[in-house]
Amino acid sequence: MLPKFWRKIRFRYGLIGSYCENCGNYYYPPRNLCPRCRRKGKVKEVQFSGYGRVLSWSVVHDAVENFWISKPYVVALIELDEGARIIAPLDCNPREIEEGMRVRAVFRKFGEDGEEGIIHYGTKFVPIG
């Protein structure tokens, strides 16, 4: 799984996704083909601003293995300002979350392949202000 993580490092660290010059839609995670335009699409890499708002969320108690130590933790469906949506961890007090709450991207540790393995980093979100 080492190459599998490595291959996506840029997209996870820097919140890099796709933009279709033909229809103007943004996508995260990145896509090779625009699902709206397919062969007519002109898909380019795009760096997202990292700002967005919360559409829905859950406080997860039955954790994914790498998140076990952080339980309960929050995952959220976030609409980025550019329009693409992303499901990502949201680091905040669960009681403070509101629908539409503004958030921004931060760089955080996601876990590790055991004590001897590599460390996974990526993008999480925190409330603004």
Binding site: S58, V60, D62, A63, V64, N66, F67, Y73, V75, I87, A88, P89, F110, H120, G122
Partner: peptide, 9 residues
């Protein structure tokens, strides 16, 4: 799932 969202989440 990598981002912490399993099926229940």
């Amino acid at each position: 799932v990598f981002n912490g969202a399993n099926l229940p989440a």
